[in-house]
């Protein structure tokens, strides 16, 4: 397609090839259907990890191609990963801790809702 384009390319920044954009788009559609389909298979606790796994793949595709990370300087990817890392530390510790102290909670406690 780019053969009949006589537009000037910019001096900086990367122009994403059309193949990459449409390829990503197709993959995202397929993966969306896959997530949807996966809910009809009962794998117990595995289900959520499958759903999350697919979401991570989809997210990575968006970040790499739509957001140009694949072609960019590595530093942008580095800060994205740092951000995700800190989110995971936060979620991980909060989950670990709350799971530990669940035993102390009064089950179903919510006096304002059901006194």
């Amino acid at each position: 397609m780019s053969t009949h384009e006589n537009e000037r390319h910019p001096d900086f920044g990367h122009v994403a090839p059309l193949k990459a954009l449409f390829g990503t788009f197709g993959a995202l559609l397929v993966l969306t259907v896959a997530t949807y389909g996966a809910t009809y298979i009962d794998l117990g606790p595995l289900n959520i990890w499958i759903a999350l796994g697919i979401a991570v793949i989809k997210g990575s595709l968006v970040a790499m191609f739509f957001m140009h990370l694949w072609w960019d300087g590595k530093f942008n990817a580095f800060i994205l990963i740092c951000g995700l890392l800190f989110v995971m530390i936060f979620i991980g510790i909060a989950m670990l801790d709350s799971a530990q102290y669940q035993a102390e909670l009064i089950p179903g406690y919510a006096p304002a809702i059901h006194p």
Binding site: T35, Y36, A38, T39, A51, L52, I54, A55, K58, G59, V62
Partner: peptide, 9 residues
């Protein structure tokens, strides 16, 4: 992309 499976599925 994350909200959809986490809330709906």
């Amino acid at each position: 992309i994350f909200l959809f499976p986490l809330l709906y599925l």
